[in-house]
Computed example of a mutant assay.
Amino acid sequence: MDEIIEHSKFGARKEDKQVVVITGSSGLIGSSLIQRLSKNYRVVGLDRVGPPYPPLQAECVNFDITDEKAINAAMERIRYGYGNKIASVIHLAAYYDFGEKDNPKYHEINVKGTKKFLQQLQDFDVEQFLFSSSNLIYKPTEPGVKINEDCPVEANWGYPESKVLTEDLIKKNNDDINAVFLRIAGIYTDDGHSIPITQQIKRIYEKELLSHFYSGDVDHGDVFVHLEDVVDAIEKAVDNRKEIPNETALNIGEPTSPTYQEIQDAVGNLLHGKDWETYEVPKSLAKAGAWARDLVSDPFIKPWMIDRAGTHYELDIWRAKDCLGWEPKHRVMDTLPKMIEDLKADPEAWYKKNNLD
């Protein structure tokens, strides 16, 4: 006779684990975060209808952050299945597009969507609202001058501008929920997954003529951070949520920023056994060339990007060390050999996983 299995009458509420809600749960950060946090928390992933889906360690609840009714339905599902108390809401959902300088979706999704979502959360007992912001909100600096969390902002295109506006609206529209702003650098993984880096590698791998020219200062560079270090930082922020003061901003990035030329030479040597000769060109000439290419194809480098070429970011991460006990374990220059190794082993697969087809 078959054994009769008795199902729990209490569902997830019977567990002692506290609840964490993650928006954008099927994305690069969200998927990795679910796998990490599910060991100690009950995780609910909020995401758009349809694939990709978050990992199975989290319940997937579909919602549309631009639709108040859809947000309300999702939160009612969470209330029914998990109760009214939420340890942390990790807000990763956002619109981002390298193809356009400005897009109405930046405001519709990133700003207005967050406001609608935050309004729904006021009916819950939420200990922490963690917002994934960006280092791109800051005014660029010069080599050797680090940016701390109190430095001026200078958002001059749609994406960072939406992050600045969203940080402000969270401060103005949030009642009784401790907010944390993680200003995250450009994320990469062992496989790549950084659009600027993988595009730079692609140009050198294919020996494109364009790979030898740059419209900015080659001795300037961006700040990066490995995905695993980002997940570490978020986990520490959730674990230490009761000790972090409300509206704390934290820089999450590596303490050193490689220059454009350093990455060029590293990739050139790894792929072709030599430094990669790179020449600075006037912005006016570069912009004209980008405009002409944009007429006949869909290149990665758009005319509006020329003005941003050569901007420099270096982050002071002291506050993250002090508040979270966090500092990155990876360095992008140490990871480049792994990226190139994977590219050489299977170029087609590497191109596909980095959306370079």
Rank of each mutant, 00 (worst) to 15 (best):
A292R: 06
K139H: 12
I234D: 11
L356A: 01
V223G: 05
V61N: 08
F224D: 06
M305Q: 14
V267K: 00
I301A: 13
L169D: 09
Y96L: 11
V223N: 13
A94K: 01
E68D: 06
G221F: 01
E262G: 00
L118C: 07
Q122W: 08
G268P: 02
I4Y: 06
K352T: 11
G99K: 09
S8H: 14
L37T: 01
H91G: 07
F10L: 15
E254C: 10
A288D: 12
H226K: 13
P104G: 12
P160V: 06
L250R: 08
N174Q: 07
A58N: 11
L28G: 03
C151A: 15
V332M: 08
Y279G: 12
D168Y: 13
S215W: 04
A58W: 10
E167I: 07
W157F: 14
P347I: 02
V19Y: 08
N62M: 07
N251Y: 03
I78Y: 04
I90A: 04
F181R: 05
V238N: 11
Q200N: 02
W157P: 06
G268Q: 00
D275F: 06
T256E: 08
K321D: 07
I340Y: 00
I5S: 07
L343H: 01
S257E: 04
D168N: 11
D232A: 14
K69S: 06
K14L: 12
D168I: 09
G253I: 04
V281F: 06
K302H: 02
N251W: 04
Y214W: 10
K352R: 13
D176A: 14
L130H: 13
E206I: 04
V145S: 12
Q199D: 00
Q119R: 09
P337C: 01
L165W: 15
R77A: 09
I34K: 05
S26I: 10
A185I: 13
K112V: 12
D175N: 07
F213L: 08
S132P: 03
W304I: 02
V20Y: 03
M339P: 01
Q264F: 01
E149S: 07
P245D: 02
Q264K: 06
D176V: 10
F131V: 07
V281D: 01
N355Q: 13
G289M: 10
E154G: 06
F98Y: 13
N84D: 12
H220K: 10
S211G: 02
L356Q: 01
D222H: 09
L56T: 13
M1F: 12
P52W: 11
A266F: 00
P140T: 15
L271W: 01
I201N: 02
L182P: 05
G289E: 06
T311M: 13
E76V: 00
P152R: 15
Q35K: 15
A286Y: 08
T23M: 03
I34H: 03
C323P: 00
F300Q: 05
D219M: 02
L271E: 00
H330P: 03
I147A: 10
G216S: 03
D222W: 13
S26D: 12
E277L: 14
Q35F: 10
W304R: 02
D64Y: 06
V332G: 00
I306W: 04
G268S: 03
